[in-house]
Each structure stands twice: as C-alpha cells, then as structure tokens.
C-alpha cells in the first residue's frame, strides 16, 4: 500500500514538469516553483526550530552510554557521558558527522540454547553514511552552477569526486555511492519483515523522491544531455533575482528541478527534519549534570509561602494556651 502510493506520487511528480514543458510553462517550472520551494524550505525549517526551542525541557534527559563522572578514581567517559558544554559539542560532532548512535545498531537473536545474542550489524550505518555524505558532496558540487567564480572548496570536491573519470568520460564517484546507499535503504525496508511492517508511505515517498532526483541527475549528466550553460544562466538569474528562462534546456532538466523543488517544499513537514532535529534532541544536546548542578524548572512561578515561624507568630498565643510546644520560647 505504502510502496504503491509513493510510487504513484513520484510518477505524478515526474509527469507534471514533463507535461509542463510541453504546455510551455517553463517560467512557472523554472522560476515560480524554485522560489516558492526555497521559501517554504527556509521559513518552514525556521518555524519548526523555533517551535522546538519554545518547548521547555525541565529535566536533564541525556541518553548516555559511558561511565558517568563520579569519584576521581573511577575513569569517566567525558564524551559519551558529557558533563561539560565541550563534551556535549564533541558528542554532537560525532553524532552529526559519523552517526555515532546508528553505529551502535545491532541485531538481537535468541540462540538454540535460548540465550540472547547481539549480532554485529553495521550495514544500515554504512548505507546511511554513504548516502548522506554522497548527497552532501553532490549538493556542494552543484554550487558551481550558482556562483560566478566557483569557490575553491567546490572545485576541490569536484576534482576529488571526479577522480575516476577517464578520457573525456566524466564520472562522479558519489553518483554511484548515493544510488548504492539509497538502494540499500529501500531494499532493507522491502525485505526485512519487521522493518517492512513499520514502514509507511512517508518512508517510501522520501526514498523514491531522492532516488528520482538522483536518477534524473545521472540521466542528465551521462545520457540525455541538457545545455549546461543554459542551466547555469537560469540558476544565476534566480540567485540574482532577475529571472531569465533560456529556451530549450530540455525537459529532463525541468523534471530534475521539479523533483528538487518537491523535496525542498516537503522537507519541513516530513521526517527529513531529523537533520535539524538532531541538534535539538534533549537526549543528545544536554550535559549529564542532573545532580551536579541545580536545575530550576523554567515554568516555576513565585509561590506565596507561609513558613512555620510566621505561623507560630500568628497563632503562638492560642497554641500556648492549648499547651502545645512552641519553637520560640518567649
């Protein structure tokens, strides 16, 4: 159900620009949609992050996996169980760039003797790393279409990535890696029964959408050529806010662009917010200082208190008359 629905949606998303080019709607596809999608992307992400920032987290809830700092003679793990801001930053860097907690992934199995065994399982981590880093490098590479003078970092990535190109064939290694990563992430959902059971249309849709972007890009790069100078002209005019639509770039380009627009516009509403959300996860971004420091509930309001001293002052005489013991012997 989820798979079919997502595939149908992707087919529709491909058909829209394909028919749009026939209908002569290049301006809408090349200018209106990109601006709209990028605005939704930026505003949507800012809105979601501000919403998260407004939710109070009154208690320290880091999930830790190292020895907590206690006695001097017990060796603590300052990164996996951080007590300082620096430790939290190091932990976050590991998480953000190397997917530390996904690396902990393992498989549980009950052996024939009835014992529990935890089995080494790093394939999901590997596929995730391959996919995310390749996608990141591909995005960086695309900057050459948006800048008048390509920054050295972009050229550097491009040269490294194109290392396996030979003769006049250009070949970007990340194009292959991103497809391998995505393929694993999809096959895993389809093949492993437990993962398939928890997979919904939203999971498949994003995978198919990014696959659509990758395939249309690969197709455009290696097989159905589009006019690169025209593409750059359009991209630069969008960036300069003086949109010009060059003629005859080719419908493959508009399919690629429209799928990217769909991804950008969908991003803030989807599970893809796991990226920005990682930085705002209370289980990851808090130092484990539950008892080391005093943490005051942020929504505490001033409570009117009536201490025992005041009580005794008020009712002291009555209490004395009734023969009750008093703190203050007057």
């Amino acid at each position: 159900m989820g798979v079919g629905f997502s595939l149908l949606m992707i087919v529709l998303l491909v058909l829209i620009p394909f028919l749009g080019v026939y209908a002569g709607l290049e301006y809408v596809l090349g200018v209106v949609f990109p601006y709209l999608a990028f605005s939704i992307f930026i505003i949507g992400i800012l809105y979601r992050i501000i919403c998260w920032g407004r939710s109070p987290v009154p208690f320290r809830i880091p999930t830790t996996c190292g020895q907590q700092k206690s006695h001097d003679w017990i060796k603590a793990d300052p990164v996996e169980n951080p007590t300082t801001a620096f430790g939290v930053i190091l932990r976050m860097v590991k998480e953000l760039f190397f997917f530390r907690s996904l690396f902990r992934n393992n498989k549980v199995k009950i052996t024939e003797k009835g014992h529990i065994a935890y089995i080494w399982e790093k394939w999901l981590w590997l596929a995730a790393i391959l996919f995310h880093w390749s996608f990141f490098i591909i995005i960086i590479r695309h900057l050459r279409l948006f800048t008048p003078k390509t920054p050295w970092l972009v050229s550097f990535f491009e040269r490294m990535d194109g290392f396996f190109g030979f003769g006049m064939y250009s070949f970007y290694f990340t194009d292959l890696l991103v497809v391998i990563g995505l393929a694993y992430l999809l096959i895993r959902r389809l093949v492993i029964p437990m993962v398939r059971y928890v997979s919904l249309a939203a999971d498949y849709f994003v995978l198919f959408l990014i696959m659509g972007i990758a395939f249309s890009g690969i197709l455009m790069k290696y097989f159905v050529r589009a006019d690169v100078a025209g593409v750059k002209e359009l991209a630069m005019s969008l960036v300069a806010f003086k949109p010009v639509v060059p003629v005859d770039i080719g419908s493959i380009f508009y399919i690629h662009l429209f799928l990217v627009c769909a991804l950008l516009a969908y991003f803030p509403f989807s599970k893809l917010m796991h990226g920005p959300g990682l930085l705002l996860s209370p289980t990851r971004n808090m130092a484990n200082t539950n008892r080391m420091k005093r943490h005051i509930n942020p929504w505490n309001y001033p409570v009117k208190v009536h201490t025992y001293e005041e009580y005794e002052e008020e009712f002291g005489k009555v209490m004395q008359a009734a023969g009750l013991p008093l703190d203050k012997q007057s």
Partner: peptide, 26 residues
Amino acid sequence: IIPILAVIVVVLTYPIWSLFGKGAAA
C-alpha cells in the same frame, strides 16, 4: 540556537550574497 540558525541561513544563501550587485549574464 539563534547564532547557529544565523550561520546556517548565511551559508544556505551564500550564492545570493556572493553575487550581490554583480551581473550574471551568460
């Protein structure tokens, strides 16, 4: 949060301000 957001927005819009005031004709 605000400084990190500011940095991210500046990085994301890098092409816009790197081009500011310059022509981009093909």
